[in-house]
Amino acid sequence: MPARSTLSRRALIGGLAAAPLLTLARGAGAKPAADLTIYAAPMTASILLARLVDSGALGAALPGASFQLWHDPDELRAAVVSKRALLFTTPTPVPANLFNRGLPVKLLAVLGTGHLTIVTSDPKIKTLADLAGKPVLGFFHHDMPDLVFRAAVKMEGFDPDKDFKLSYVGMPMEAAQMLAAGRVETAILSEPPATGAIMMAGQQGRKLYRAINLQDIWIKHTGHPIPMIGLGVHEQLLTQTPEILPLLRTGLPQAKDWVLANPQAAGELAEKVMGLHAPIVAASIAHSAIEVKSAKAARPELEAFYKTLIALSPKALDGHLPDASFYLDL
């Protein structure tokens, strides 16, 4: 195994934020490239798709597929609208919003059930009550991570705008770097940026703590986890390449098992394919709540999640739930 490399600011920001377009290894005898790009969220759950393509499990349907990270939800939305993204890992509200606005996209599976953590340098902060009145840095203002935080604190009886001093940056990697450098005390972070911030701060002699897992609050009040990360698909791909569905049905659970059983190898794969920093990804897997569940089976949890978001922001999901055809059976 390669020696653990030092985590620099460049490693965190460059490694996590980079969006290389990398053609994945093809199995022997593969047909010419199908010229399909899988658009991946910069999140640990995306390694499942990287594993499927890198191992050749999707080769019969997607020979020569390539992989590209998207940086923010608007970039992903533009790629889906333009049909550059036919298969993509995504926050689950994104395809629901596009579907409700008339685009032929569906949700195939839930791949992650909560990966947002409040990370802080203050060891006294263990509950939202401890955080009241203090500054909190967030990202993607008015989008899913912000809405999940707002929903969770409201579940606990707090007003997000009155009880916390909220500020925002554009990207989770930027928030992670600011926290690691000591420029802010507390931030809401996704994975793998939360793990990256903790590791980089440690190399600078600073200690950061995973103070509050928003997933725990959600389960406490709803009885189920947050169906946060999903696999979206454009109908054009399903029509042109219907054999992709049985390959994903078989391959995704196997990929999940491999990632959970081989975190170091999964980190190395994420670095090779996604441009993420291997040690950060390997350490983040235990905190990423990776799951594989068909969208149809997860529909009750998804609808509860969507209703919560719509209540917070009436414009979310175009103001209504998707109909049954949106939820595919993996």
Rank of each mutant, 00 (worst) to 15 (best):
I38L: 15
Y39P: 07
A40E: 11
A40V: 11
A41H: 05
M43R: 14
A45K: 15
L49N: 01
A50Q: 05
R51Y: 07
R51P: 03
R51W: 10
L52G: 06
V53S: 07
D54G: 09
D54Y: 11
S55K: 13
G56W: 09
A57Q: 10
A57C: 04
G59W: 02
A60D: 08
A60Q: 06
L62H: 01
P63L: 00
G64M: 02
G64E: 01
A65M: 03
A65D: 08
S66K: 14
S66H: 11
F67S: 07
Q68A: 08
Q68V: 12
L69W: 13
H71E: 15
D72R: 13
P73Q: 12
D74W: 10
L76M: 06
L76S: 07
R77G: 13
A78T: 12
A78L: 14
V80S: 03
V81T: 13
K83W: 14
R84F: 01
A85K: 01
A85R: 00
L86D: 01
F88Y: 03
T89H: 01
T89A: 02
T90G: 05
T90V: 14
P91T: 14
P91K: 12
T92V: 11
T92S: 12
V94H: 08
A96V: 03
A96P: 04
A96L: 00
N97W: 15
L98A: 06
R101C: 03
R101I: 00
G102H: 05
G102W: 02
G102E: 07
G102M: 04
P104A: 05
P104Y: 06
L107V: 02
L107Q: 08
L107P: 00
A109V: 00
V110M: 04
V110T: 12
L111R: 01
G112E: 08
G112I: 06
G112W: 05
G114S: 08
H115L: 05
H115N: 13
L116W: 14
L116P: 05
T117C: 09
I118A: 04
V119I: 08
